[in-house]
Nucleic acid binder design. Structure first.
Length: 245
RNA sequence: AUCACUUC
């Protein structure tokens, strides 16, 4: 079963959901009944290909075969809806999930928070954050990075430091992803200076930049129209063996 | 042992 599931993962990642379906059939024929991971892989395969409705349908299919969808299943479909701009469908499914007795975990909440944050639906986002805490679900690193990311939205610049401080108060030290998020957030709200500063701090903290770091930094510098700085970043990037995309 | 969340 693990072998089959891993195979499904490979085809799913390649965006080849028809091959994934073939494997599912083969499992059923070979007396190897699919489990929840199998169906979750199938949902993920649909989601990666942009077929969120087909992904949502798998929830019914697996239920009818006696495999209950779990938090991973729902989170995968909710994410797909969010990426497709179907926020209300995502929220709908989130409600259905809870009504069916499936308990959202930290990843589910992070998905919803990120989706609402991107759309600047701040009040709803804060409500979900409260719900999360009152359900005993503790915000993790990703939750905080998600919150920082939304501070890159228009007019949110002054919230960055505040959220960052709260994060540290909760015992989270910034990691490379946090710095990437900070650089991107400052870049998007038009503060290239702060973005560069965050890059320097990241280096000082001993983290090595990755492609995401460079992309975020380049975006920030481009917004400022600082082509000279951007060019030196590009050189630095190439010298470290990264290739610009 | 295999699946979902943030930064692109």
């Amino acid at each position: 079963i693990v072998t089959y599931n891993s195979l499904l993962n490979v085809f799913g990642k390649a965006g080849n959901y028809s091959e994934a379906l073939r494997i599912l059939k083969e499992m059923e024929e070979n007396n190897c009944p699919p489990d929840s991971v199998t169906y979750n892989e199938l949902v993920a395969a649909y989601a990666r290909a942009g077929f969120y409705e087909e992904g949502a349908d798998v929830i019914d299919t697996m239920t009818s075969r006696g495999i209950m969808p779990n938090a991973v299943t729902y989170t995968t479909v909710i994410t797909a809806y969010g990426k497709a701009g179907k926020e209300d469908k995502a929220l709908d499914l989130f409600d259905r999930m809870k009504n069916s007795g499936c308990v959202p975990n930290v990843c589910t909440y992070n998905t919803i928070i990120g989706m609402l944050g991107k759309k600047s639906r701040t009040e709803e986002m804060m409500r979900i954050l409260c719900e999360m805490k009152s359900n005993g679900c503790v915000p993790n690193r990703v939750t905080w990075n998600t919150m920082l990311a939304m501070c890159g939205n228009k007019g949110m610049r002054n919230h960055v430091q505040q959220v960052f401080r709260e994060m540290k108060n909760c015992g989270f030290e910034p990691d490379r992803d946090t710095f990437n998020t900070l650089i991107s957030a400052y870049g998007r709200c038009g503060s290239g200076i702060h973005a560069s500063k965050m890059y320097d701090e990241m280096i000082k903290a001993g983290f090595s930049p990755c492609v995401t770091t460079y992309n975020a930094l380049l975006n920030a510098l481009a917004r400022r129209g600082d082509w000279k700085a951007a060019e030196s970043v590009l050189l630095d990037m190439k010298s470290k063996g990264f290739r610009p995309s």
